[in-house]
Write a protein that binds this DNA or RNA. Structure first.
Lengths: 195, 195, 195, 195
DNA sequence: TATGAATGAGTATTCATTCAT
DNA sequence: AATGAATGAATACTCATTCAT
């Protein structure tokens, strides 16, 4: 892949850092431009407006995110194993890019309803991965036949998301990746005692 | 009986409606004042600044929220039953006040880190309720002895929160309260097949 | 003189202190009221508005000022001696009330043209004293027959005023009263070498 | 030859007029911007804040002022003649720019202590000119050996300043420049009768 | 007289966006 | 494509003043 739009990437990368360091509302376009080493006006050759930068950051990063996770769950593994891999890699990617973690868990939510709707649109790719795993699990008998896929998806996503957010709010003090197996077990077996 | 601090309540109530209708950033102080039928300046007799209105709204409502839920789980019920009651009442309260639901799930998150930290502080009361239920469940053997309380709390809260958010994002089209038993079952048994 | 309007005096005194400590624009009416131990509204029973407090402070204090100086120059002294007494007492009164000095030299000037005109009106009493001295001096031959009274009055007042302002701006570090004889000599003999 | 920083000059000039016409506190930034034919925001590309406009106006004009007076007193003249030139030119410059006179004598004083300190800093250039003349006069024997330079400087500046202020307060009704020789004489010989 | 809760007019400043070069 | 100077809309907050008690 050729670097055909070097400025675009420059701006995206500068934006992630700027958002993470200052928050969305405190990340003035001029500040992003400065960090990207381009002129203020240049931003508007690549993005419609400031919101578009945020959404593009998410789109871009989430694209790589989903791509990576898709690879990871392609194999012949069981649904349970795929769930573990999903969680572990989700945790790993965000652990390795703390700025991205901050943007994903905190800054991205500081937006209005319309923007949130667009974000949800982008999230769909991720949620479909979860659905795939759930359906496989139900089909193979690993997961309960009575499982409401939509609710289960919300549990899986809600739990992962809350776990990451708590970790970010605690300033990423502990090892997130190490929690993956326990989170997976909890999602599969629930709180109940199982013999 | 005189109404105590009538203006304070007027403003809080107007703020919930205004935030829900326009979002936090589009809720100008003058708009809130107008809705509360007080002068702009009066707001500042009762609140330090605009952020303080938002935080006070949450504090006020969450206080009632936790109080209500505390009552509900006081009885002799099993942990499982208490969990159902918690979820059901959480869903019911937000179902009955759609503006509050919007503020809680969307507007409250449009804020900076410091404010988020304050919100988390207020949330603690709620999370302690979850912990109580989890601990009771573990002690009575209903819940697994190996359960990591912190992670379990994150699963419970994350799942409930995500379920409500999805419902709000879908414009509250379906009956949230009816989902409570299934959500409870899912949290207790997980996705796994159990016989 | 009976204390018939104790609140009036309370407010005047509180205002001098408040103005000196915070400056005119930073002396909110509520702050003055608090210092005077009266309610905000009470101020408006005694003063038309905030400006009226400032002007009244000046009027009140300048009245005592001129009264005192009038006494001092009543005697049989020469014009030169009266000039010295005027300067010395002017310096002494402000030296003994540093808050009044600050208000007179700095805060009183932070006002608009109309107010300044009123202040000049009040100042007239003082300037007439200067004129009296000048005229006596010219008549007795102490002062030059060719003296332009108006210009001389401006020199006398301008010099005294500038001397006090410099002293205030230097945080009243040195003894102002001690300068009086030299200032008087300078005003009478000028810069020129005189044998 | 391109006009350098045309907007800066535009704003400075508009500010002098606006301050003179409306007073500092009644000169809204938007009013200055309108008079300067620039957008409100443009002001902030050239000035830190509203106070900075005032101080810059003074700095700019006082710079030219001192420069002009420096030229004027460079020659081989006696101290007495230099003093006359100083006064005459001081009077002339302000006579020719009545707006500047109003700003200098009235508006500039409507400010707080910090700002006043900055103004004094700028004034130092002027006061040094006065000192030069005084010292030359003392050295050549024109002025009294016993002269306290600091007090004399205060007399010279105080007298000039008071004369101009009185003239401004009287709406510049009379010819200020014509007073210069008499003011000079008065400063040199004082009020005393000299033969 | 005295109070002090309530009022609401008034404004400096920021910053996303544009556009002439 | 790139620049960055210029734009101007938009708004939280203060505080002098009022008036019902």
């Amino acid at each position: 892949m050729k670097t055909q739009k070097p400025k675009y990437k420059q701006i995206i990368d500068a934006a992630v850092v700027t958002f993470a360091e200052n928050g969305y509302h405190q990340s003035q376009v001029s500040k992003i431009a400065k960090n990207a080493k381009v002129a203020d006006g240049t931003i508007y050759l690549y993005f419609k407006n400031k919101e578009d930068i945020l959404i593009s950051v998410f789109q871009e990063k989430m694209g790589q995110f989903v791509e990576k996770l898709e690879e990871v769950i392609q194999g012949e593994n069981s649904a349970s194993e795929k769930l573990r891999l999903l969680i572990e890699n989700h945790f790993r990617i965000l652990s390795e890019d703390s700025n991205l973690a901050i943007v994903t868990q905190l800054e991205l939510r500081q937006t209005n309803k319309e923007l949130r709707a667009q974000i949800n649109e982008i999230l769909k790719g991720y949620l479909q991965l979860v659905d795939q795993i759930l359906i496989q699990g139900i089909e193979t008998g690993e997961f309960s036949k009575e499982l409401d896929t939509r609710l289960a998806r919300q549990m899986v996503f809600g739990t992962i998301d809350e776990t990451v957010t708590t970790w970010v709010m605690n300033e990423q003090k502990y090892d997130l990746v190490r929690l993956a197996p326990k989170v997976k077990d909890m999602l599969i077996h629930g709180c109940g005692s199982h013999h």
